[in-house]
Simulated assay, not measured.
Amino acid sequence: MLDRQAIELTLISAAQQQGFTLNGKDMLDIRTSVAASLAAKDRHRQRMNTPAYQWKKPEPRR
């Protein structure tokens, strides 16, 4: 799996090859979008790896 920094550098170099000049806000947008997508991917992986929920009927009180 690619790490965060490699993804950011790839997006920055692709933008520069297309002729875009990136300012501070653009760099911040790239960093936050990469971090958000990786966090969402991790949350999805955690949801898929958890066991299925099994409801248990509560025992009656005395």
Rank of each mutant, 00 (worst) to 15 (best):
M1L: 08
M1F: 05
M1Y: 03
L2K: 15
L2H: 15
L2C: 12
L2W: 13
D3R: 07
D3F: 04
D3V: 05
R4W: 02
A6H: 00
A6C: 00
A6D: 00
I7A: 06
I7Y: 03
E8D: 01
E8K: 04
E8I: 11
T10W: 07
L11V: 09
L11F: 13
L11H: 08
L11Q: 07
I12S: 08
I12N: 06
A14M: 14
A15E: 05
A15L: 09
Q16M: 11
Q16A: 11
Q17I: 06
Q17P: 02
Q17R: 11
G19V: 09
G19N: 08
G19K: 10
F20S: 01
T21C: 13
T21L: 15
T21E: 15
L22F: 03
L22V: 05
N23A: 10
N23Q: 14
N23V: 13
G24A: 04
G24H: 02
G24D: 10
K25T: 11
K25I: 09
K25D: 15
D26E: 04
D26N: 05
D26Y: 00
M27R: 10
M27V: 03
M27A: 07
L28C: 11
R31H: 11
T32I: 04
T32R: 11
S33P: 00
V34D: 03
V34P: 06
V34A: 02
A35N: 06
A35Q: 06
A36W: 06
A36T: 12
S37M: 08
S37W: 07
L38K: 14
L38T: 10
A39K: 11
A40Y: 14
K41A: 12
K41G: 10
D42R: 03
D42N: 00
D42L: 01
R43T: 08
R43M: 12
R43E: 14
R43Q: 12
H44K: 12
H44A: 14
H44E: 13
H44Q: 12
R45W: 12
Q46I: 07
R47S: 09
R47P: 01
M48W: 03
M48P: 00
M48H: 07
N49H: 04
T50G: 09
T50Q: 15
P51V: 08
P51T: 08
Y53C: 01
Y53E: 02
Q54I: 10
Q54T: 10
W55N: 00
K56P: 00
K56D: 02
K56G: 01
K57N: 01
E59A: 13
P60K: 13
P60L: 12
P60V: 07
R61F: 12
R61E: 13
R61W: 07
R61N: 08
R62H: 15
R62E: 14
R62S: 15
R62M: 14
R62A: 15
